[in-house]
Design a protein around this nucleic acid. Sequence first.
DNA 1: TTTTGAGTTGTTCGA
DNA 2: GTCGAACAACTCAAA
Length: 476
Amino acid sequence: MTTTILWFRRDLRLADNPALLKALQTAERVVPLFIFAPEEEAGWKPGAASRWWLRHSLAALDESLRQAGSRLLIRRGPSLDALRQVGLETGAGQIYWNRLYEPAAVARDQAIKHALRADGLRVESFNSALLREPWQVTRGKGEPYKVFTPYWNTLRRQGLSEPPLPAPAALPPLPPALHSLSLDSLALLPTIPWDGGLRQAWRPGESAAMARLEAFIGEALTGYAQDRDRPGHPGTSGLSPHLHFGEIGPRQIVQALQAREEQAGGAECHLRQLAWREFAHHLLFHFPHTPESPLDRRFQHFPWNEADHDTLRAWQQGRTGIPLVDAGMRELWQTGWMHNRVRMVAASFLVKNLRVHWLEGARWFWDTLVDANLANNTLGWQWVAGCGADAAPYFRVFNPVLQGERFDPSGDYVRRWVPELARLPCPAIHQPWAAPAALLESVGVRLGVDYPKPVADLKTSREQALAAYRGLPKTV
DNA sequence: TTTTGAGTTGTTCGA
DNA sequence: GTCGAACAACTCAAA
């Protein structure tokens, strides 16, 4: 009997899973295996919110495997040892997996591939996570892109329409004697119950991901181009954590989008967002130092402020006194997610107004986001800080008051996450420090008591940021 | 090699 | 209130 190990990593789905399909086509028995090995992810071990998601996603995967006649085997790392061990236990001759693109994962997988091949095993990897792999979209001589638009043009020219693969109808059973660790033994869930908001906001797993895609296409795609920028609205797809864990793949999304010709505008706009995800992976693969170091080397000696503990805590906990920033940071803390528009505003405030190193922000997002993804997080923070690919020009400092008035004109987003300001009327809710004393009193808000005074003056901190950025060296 | 056009997401100021 | 210009040159990408 030929046996193939299917090593699940961040491709936690049965549909459009090329490694799984190939395993089923070429072996009589397939062993679905997940190995818990966070220490192999170097400085970017999954954060608390990611671990919560992973726990439930693995449970969902095990459930769908069982419905198809199999089950998920769970082991602990080191990954190579676990693969060898399961190989011995099952007599597997092949090991297949879908590729990852983080520098630590690339290095590990390459070493594992060599070692297993030296053992005499057949090892193959596949692409489940991206429309095009990082090395497939390049400039003339194979150099990587650093600007989104030409990258996007090339991606388009190459075509996006490779169809997703079908889900297997049935899987061969596993021998009952094969031992699996329990999910609980991985201790992925928090010991203190802070995950209520996550449970309310999300349902991890492949079927929930498909349901969300269908809901998005049915309800939000038409207005996507505008509504996706409105944090109070349900205008985004909400697919980011599902994509991160591979509960859904981009090919499946593209196919669903392309089936909606009558909503071509929204579909095109969302396709572009998917392309940003592709671009982020492209950059991380070709510039593997960027999770920790600026892509633009002029920033190596940029005068970041020493991150003073109290200010950083205020930002993390949504106590900066800037309503839109605080709303976003509290949404993040409670739901494990923050609206994209507000991510930019909150990040810009930390990096430009407070001039705290972008890595401090990146690390906090890493720990608290359910969609924490090294490629996207790195691109996002470096973009805001001005030191990344296609970075925001240095003079682009988001004004959280204007952004609030423009994108949360009713103030409902702030009201939802900063309830102590809920009774303030509309323009005032975005800058309570400028509201008349009588108004504040009438709605029972004492600044500095019920809600903080701003930790930074927007005007002067902006000017100081511009001065610091102006002082950047012209070249390295 | 040289040249040319273009570059996610903004704010402020003055007319 | 609305509009255009300034912000600052530089790098990227392609011809």
